[in-house]
């Protein structure tokens, strides 16, 4: 059969590959090579070596280095909080009690709302709360930081909860019964039976939340737009405003994007490898 199908590649594979070429491969390759050039449009690029990278890291008026650790802090903290809360809620909502399904529905719902809408929604709420102390979200970079944590927590907790619930439901009943017969406490059962069996779900959830954290853009734009003076910019927004907010900085913007991309790819790979090792074979 393989031979008969093989010659049909123009029908089956070509459309996707052409689109991939336009939408991903060419822009990626061009973006990578442009990061070593000085340019304003695609046609006037001049090779300048690693000049752009030096500019990206050394210019102090530009907050790239700040954005780097600010984003890393945000990504790791939001990942931890989202997953701990999601597991706790999932543990509660796998129990049979009246209204469980309705509660799951409620917690999942914010996921369907887009980042821009979410950002504006929370801007009103958080500014309303902070106003009691005469503050706003842009009073300092840390109000924006915690604001973003609240927004992503509210948005993504339910998504991860759904994944954890399905993970918990797939744990064989005999194992939980065996643990109960051996007299394990609820906490022991969780640490030594449920959590190890849940590791595949943990892998994927950590992967999703961590990469989401690093890539976050829309919520950042709508909530604080980087204010005060670019101090609450996450990496994605920092790169965006370098490209479109500063003339003559497109090259540095592209260099930043390459650094950003490398960081995300490396983290994704490390993280998948690390958690895969801890999974229990089923």
């Amino acid at each position: 059969m393989e031979r008969a199908v093989k010659k049909y590649w123009p029908v089956f594979v070509l459309p996707t590959m052409l689109a991939c070429l336009i939408g991903f491969v060419i822009p990626f390759a061009m973006g990578f090579s442009l990061s070593f050039c000085s340019f304003t449009t695609l046609s006037d690029a001049v090779f300048t070596g690693i000049d752009n990278y030096i500019r990206a890291f050394s210019d102090t008026s530009d907050s790239f280095v700040h954005a780097l650790w600010y984003t890393a802090l945000f990504a790791f903290l939001s990942t931890a909080l989202i997953n701990v809360l999601a597991i706790l809620v999932a543990l509660a909502l796998v129990r049979p009690f009246r209204g469980v399904n309705a509660f799951r529905t409620v917690f999942f719902m914010p996921n369907l709302i887009g980042g821009i809408v979410l950002g504006w929604l929370w801007q009103v709420i958080l500014n309303g709360i902070l106003a009691r102390w005469g503050l706003t979200l842009v009073s300092s970079e840390w109000y924006g930081f915690w604001g973003l944590i609240v927004v992503t927590l509210w948005q993504q907790m339910g998504y991860m909860m759904i994944i954890y619930i399905s993970g918990l439901q797939s744990i064989p009943h005999e194992q939980l019964e065996a643990a109960a017969i051996d007299g394990a406490t609820a906490l022991q059962t969780f640490w030594h039976v449920k959590l190890p069996m849940l590791m595949p779900s943990v892998t994927i959830c950590l992967f999703l939340t961590l990469t989401n954290g690093f890539k976050l853009f829309d919520q950042n734009l709508a909530l604080t737009a980087g204010m005060p003076s670019n101090r609450s910019q996450l990496l994605a927004l920092n790169i965006y405003s370098t490209f479109y907010g500063r003339t003559g900085w497109a090259g540095a913007g592209q260099a930043k994007a390459v650094v950003f991309c490398a960081i995300v790819v490396v983290i994704a790979m490390l993280q998948l490898k690390w958690t895969r090792n801890r999974e229990v074979q089923q």
């Binding site: 990626f28 061009m30 853009f217 965006y240 991309c261």
Partner: peptide, 19 residues
């Protein structure tokens, strides 16, 4: 395909809009 899933949009943002 797997690789393209991880790459952040900002990496191709500028060149993609030009293309």
């Amino acid at each position: 395909c797997v690789f393209s899933m991880v790459v952040p949009f900002q990496m191709v943002m500028f060149t993609l809009s030009k293309v």
